[in-house]
Simulated assay, not measured.
Amino acid sequence: MRTKLHEQLDDLTDRLALMCHLAGEAIGVATDALVQADLPLAEQVFDLNEQIEGARGPCEDQAMALLALQAPVAGDLRQVVTGVHLVSDLSRMGGLAQHVAASVRRRHPNHVTSGEAEELLTRMGRVATELAGLAEQVLRGRDPELAAELGRRDDELDDLHRRLLTLIQDPTWEGTIPTAVDVTLLGRFYERFGDYTVVVGRRVIFLVTGEQLTP
């Protein structure tokens, strides 16, 4: 019975890691679409998010079935409960990537922004993509030290976000008000995406150690 439970828990982990992989792919493609003002790329992000949402239901159903039928305890119970929370976190990551793509779709065929603002957003997108890849590794390997690294790497994203806000608040910045709104929202989407990867790391640390970390 325990062997079957662990096989099912491993399968749940694989499903969650796939959701994380898709979210990372989505934010990467969304960033490419942003830089290139490429509508077909933006549409790919919507397709990727549909895949993420399609995986959400089976993950939730599997977790609920494990709770109801297998009666997990101790570390196994932590893994199931953590999985339930992670499904929502990973779904939100996909949603944030879709928000970036929606900005591209809304402004097409024009670029959402240009110059230094676009450069900063591009860097934020690259860091967000790397964070998602790291989060996937954490989910698969359950390494607390690697999980803690997510928080340190997210500091880079936060710094870029601060620089972006400073830029558009500068009186000499030549962007329009609509562009400033778009850039502010995009910066927030990337910043929140990074935050969710940190949450993934904290949940894995809790799973492995039982230690509940505060933000």
Score class of each variant (00 low, 15 high):
Ala17Cys: 10
Leu77Arg: 06
Leu39Gly: 06
Val199Ile: 04
Gln137Pro: 00
Leu41His: 06
Arg56Val: 02
Gln79His: 11
Val112Ile: 04
Asp143His: 07
His108Thr: 08
Thr122Met: 10
Arg142Gln: 15
Leu22Trp: 09
Arg56Thr: 08
Ser88Gly: 13
Pro178Gln: 13
Ile168Lys: 02
Val100Asn: 05
Thr184Tyr: 09
Thr179Cys: 04
Leu160Asp: 02
Val198Gln: 11
Ala135Cys: 04
Leu150Gly: 01
Pro178Arg: 14
Gly95Cys: 09
Gly141Tyr: 11
Glu119Asn: 09
Arg2Ser: 13
Val80Glu: 03
Gly194Asp: 07
Pro40Phe: 00
Gln36Leu: 11
Thr129Ala: 15
Glu136His: 10
Leu90Cys: 11
Thr172Gly: 05
Leu22Val: 12
Arg203Leu: 11
Pro72Leu: 03
His99Ile: 07
Met124Ala: 00
Gly24Met: 08
Ala128Phe: 12
Glu116Tyr: 00
Gly141Ile: 02
Gly141Leu: 15
Ala180Leu: 08
Gly141Lys: 15
Leu5Ala: 00
Gly24Asp: 03
Glu7Arg: 14
His111Ser: 13
Gln137Ser: 12
Ala42Pro: 05
Gln169Tyr: 10
Ala97Asp: 10
Cys59Met: 02
Thr214Glu: 08
His6Arg: 15
Gly194Ser: 04
Asn49Thr: 12
Thr214Val: 04
Val35Arg: 09
Asp154Asn: 14
Asp143Ser: 06
Val87Arg: 05
Gln44Phe: 08
Leu9Ile: 04
Val80Leu: 02
Asp14Ala: 11
His85Val: 02
Val80Phe: 07
Glu116Ala: 11
Thr214Asn: 06
Gln137Cys: 05
Val181Ala: 15
Glu25Ser: 14
Val198Trp: 03
Arg163Thr: 12
Gly175His: 12
Pro144Thr: 05
Thr13Asp: 04
Asn110Trp: 08
Arg163Gly: 13
His99Lys: 14
Glu191Asn: 06
Leu167Val: 11
Gly57His: 10
Val87Gln: 06
Ala17Asp: 02
Ile205Tyr: 03
Gln98Val: 01
Val200Ala: 01
Ala37Lys: 04
Val199Leu: 00
Phe206Trp: 15
Ala33Phe: 01
His21Trp: 09
Ala117Asp: 02
Glu156Lys: 08
Ala147Leu: 00
Leu34Thr: 07
Val35Trp: 00
Glu136Asp: 09
Arg140Met: 09
Ala55His: 15
Leu164Ser: 10
His21Ala: 13
Gln44Val: 09
Gly210Gln: 13
Leu213Asn: 07
Val104Gln: 04
Glu119Ala: 14
Gly75Val: 12
Val127Phe: 10
Phe206Tyr: 15
Thr122Gln: 15
Thr13Arg: 13
Arg142Pro: 01
Ser88Cys: 05
